[in-house]
Design a protein around this nucleic acid. Structure first.
Lengths: 190, 190
DNA sequence: GCTAAAATATCCCGTAATGGACAAAAACGA
DNA sequence: TCGTTTTTGTCCATTACGGGATATTTTAGC
């Protein structure tokens, strides 16, 4: 497999492939998209695909991983040491690419999302929290538990939102999230 | 220089570079766009650029060449052997990318357009006509003269149209072109 | 069920793209 | 005017991509 970080070609190819998959998802059902379709849409060779990803799911997870990293980047430490987590952009983006995420939640991608996606998001949140809180005293709730809870609530909220055709605006969903968990999370921090 | 036709990478890189230039033209003046800007916008390495094009003008001409080939492809032979040249899509496209062509006509690209572009378009029209009329008796006006006239009128019409802020719709411009030269051209064919 | 077509997955070799270095020219400000 | 910075071309070793070929599996039609 290629490195994917150093060379510009690698990065570009990966972006192209992910973009191609997202384009296709907007048009047809996830599990009837073939690797063939993807490489044609992306205009790259077959072997190039397999040099980067093992299969279709691998590519999708990688795409989700990228989104998750953006999301987790929203976890910040205010000047007063207060922990913030702005999820407004996340819900906004989700609505902007409504069809994509609906396909994921309802289609075959859902299994991926709950099985691997939840674990992946949880791990990323935990890493982010650990980095931000480095040097501070231990929180009263263990970090893995905290991270897992945050990830779980976020995904559950998202699923409900999509299932019910996103009746509330992203701002409202963010507010709900804040009210639901962020207070509790902060109470666990010194 | 690379071949540019066989390998998918070459074709894709060229398309990417042309696309990048067109994007930049919509934002800033042609002659203050650097090769640097182009490769950054296109996300390709410097050396890659020079592997394909000698300089900025070279790239622009290549882009124009591509458009011209689409345009010349509109020269067709009807079922009755009647020569047709539909320029509606051409004027439409020009209006669709108004800023690009205005910059070309008014900016530093203009010198290129009249000096090399006219000759290039003329040559392409001539080649197309020769291919279509192969096997027929000689036209009463020599092919190079005919082709040059068509190219000239087309560019003159275009320049006037842009200079006067395209007062007429593309359909009208096409009609004018038809009335102006296509009758005469057909009268020269057996 | 059987067959043909399409998609998967893995290999290799030739080739295009990369990034970095370099000298030279142009653009820019002090 | 002179020095600084940016851009321009050109070169090269390294690396990723393309496009076959291949064997295997999946899908679709009959």
């Amino acid at each position: 497999m290629n490195d994917g970080k150093q060379d510009r070609r690698s990065r570009r190819t990966r972006e192209t492939l992910i973009h191609a998959l997202l384009e296709l998802i907007e048009r047809k059902h996830y599990d009837q998209i073939s690797v063939q379709d993807i490489v044609e849409q992306a205009n790259v060779g077959r072997s190039t695909f397999y040099a980067h990803y093992g299969n279709k799911d691998d590519l999708l997870l990688s795409g989700l991983e990228h989104q998750m990293e953006l999301l987790v980047g929203q976890i910040t430490l205010g000047g007063t040491g207060r922990l913030d987590f702005d999820t407004r952009a996340f819900f906004q983006h989700t609505r902007g690419h409504y069809e994509i995420y609906r396909t994921l939640v309802w289609g075959a991608g859902f299994k991926l999302l709950v099985e691997d996606g939840q674990a992946m998001l949880s791990a990323k949140i935990e890493a982010r929290l650990a980095a931000l809180l480095a040097g501070r005293p231990e929180p009263s709730i263990p970090l893995p538990v905290l991270a897992n809870a945050i990830a779980g609530v976020l995904l559950v909220l998202l699923k409900w939102w999509l299932d019910n055709k996103s009746p509330y605006p992203p701002e409202r969903m963010d507010a709900i999230f804040q009210q639901l968990v962020m207070g509790g999370v902060r109470s666990a921090l010194p």
